[in-house]
Computed example of a mutant assay.
Amino acid sequence: MPHLELVATLEGHQDRVWQASWHPTKTILATCSGDKTVRLWTPISHDNFEQWQCIETLEGAHKRTIRSVDWSPSGNELATASFDATTGIWENDPRDNDWECVATLEGHENEIKSVAWSSTGALLATCSRDKSVWIWEVESDNDFECLSVLQEHTQDVKMVAWHPKSEILASASYDDTIKIWKEDEDDWYCADTLEGHTSTVWSLDFNEEGDQIVSASDDQTLRIWKMYKPDNDQGVMTHNGEATWKTICTLSGFHDRCIYSVSWSKVNGYIASVSGDNSIRIFEKDTEATVNEDEPTYKNIATKKDAHGVYDINGVSWFPTKLHQDWLSTVGDDGLVRIWRVVLD
């Protein structure tokens, strides 16, 4: 059986760490914290992955906790979402390799929980405790225009995630639902509401193709949803010419507390989840046991208990390319960032 091996522990944040985001092409990890900073980490050399260094600390732009951080697809910008109700846009000046907050996006009424760039980098999404999802268009000279304020969730919105290939957005909420958002002639609308979780949906991620979503919930389950287009061969009902998302697999009994974060590797297809039970779990599709692709079976191939000691693990993220496809990062209430490797026995 595979197992998780600790590659490195990164120390420096002065408060709990909420999220980590891998650079799209380089071995750089961005992490955000209750200490109001973002730190950028990289190995000290190309052949020493056990020792990492903080190469930059981004600070001064936010007055409260930075809850979410995300690299733009180009890797030249970072977006940060804060409990101070603002989103920061940071840009790297290659001349002196310095980072600067070049824009501050305002409008949310209170704590912003998540920020995400679209796959093209043309759009940015934010969501907040104010129950809304905002879609921003990236314009020239660090200007951002709010295209739409989406207010169909009835509670705090915990996370937004973009489809890996299309301008389709998914949002997860305290109202136990996931909503799928699409654009129609410059206006955004809710194309589908995914119901099935019995408590807060904390996190979600698309698979590589974007036709499936994995979601993580306070109900201690992971759900895998599949998109069915109109006139699909399986006879799944759709409405108004829109695709319908349907649960095809529920993973339960693996975590015994709230599952805070989930990440679906776009390279190896593994799903990683982390929880308030202090454990990391890795899941793989069981191809031998899966008879019907609309009822797949997944198996828990690796588990790391007490991965951050007695502390909650807030986030997990797979390395995005084949270079280190077996790596994942976790961040916790202990203020630590950890890099792990899946080792195949």
Rank of each mutant, 00 (worst) to 15 (best):
T27K: 09
W99C: 08
K182E: 14
D93S: 12
M1S: 13
C146E: 11
S148R: 07
D333R: 05
G196T: 06
D256W: 11
E293M: 09
S114W: 08
S273C: 07
E293C: 05
L169R: 00
L123G: 00
W90I: 10
P24S: 02
E293D: 15
C101G: 09
D333G: 02
T37C: 03
C127D: 04
I301V: 15
S203K: 03
A191M: 01
V331K: 00
P94W: 13
S199Q: 13
D306Q: 12
V342S: 01
G332T: 07
V342L: 15
A172R: 06
R64Q: 14
T25L: 08
T37K: 04
L10C: 13
H62S: 07
Y311W: 14
H13I: 06
T57K: 10
N268F: 06
S261F: 06
L6H: 05
V262P: 02
G309K: 12
W162E: 04
K304H: 07
F283P: 00
R257E: 09
G253Q: 09
S203R: 07
W52C: 00
R281Q: 14
W99S: 08
R67H: 11
R281S: 09
N142C: 10
D143E: 15
D156K: 07
D294P: 06
D141H: 12
Y311D: 13
A81H: 10
Y228G: 00
K299W: 06
C249Y: 01
S21D: 07
V17E: 02
S119P: 14
N232G: 12
G75S: 04
A289W: 05
G34L: 02
D231Q: 14
I271N: 03
R67T: 05
S118E: 11
T250E: 14
A79S: 14
E288F: 08
M1K: 12
A79P: 02
D231F: 13
G235M: 12
W134L: 11
E109S: 13
V115T: 07
W22Q: 05
D141P: 02
V133P: 01
N300C: 15
A216K: 00
T42A: 13
K131A: 11
S118M: 08
E91K: 15
N232E: 11
A61S: 14
Y270I: 06
M237H: 09
E5K: 13
L58C: 04
E106C: 05
D277R: 01
Q234M: 14
Q53E: 15
L29K: 00
D312S: 13
W99T: 06
L323I: 12
N92M: 15
A243G: 13
S265I: 00
T154V: 10
N142M: 12
C127F: 05
I66T: 03
H197W: 12
E183S: 14
P230G: 02
T37Q: 02
G315W: 14
P94V: 10
T154I: 07
A8Y: 08
W188V: 05
M1H: 08
W264I: 04
E5D: 12
P320Y: 04
G75Q: 02
H62I: 07
W134I: 07
S72E: 08
A302S: 08
N278D: 12
V342P: 00
L251Q: 00
I224A: 04
G235S: 08
A30K: 07
G332W: 02
P164L: 10
H23R: 08
V343C: 08
C249Q: 02
S74Y: 05
D93H: 10
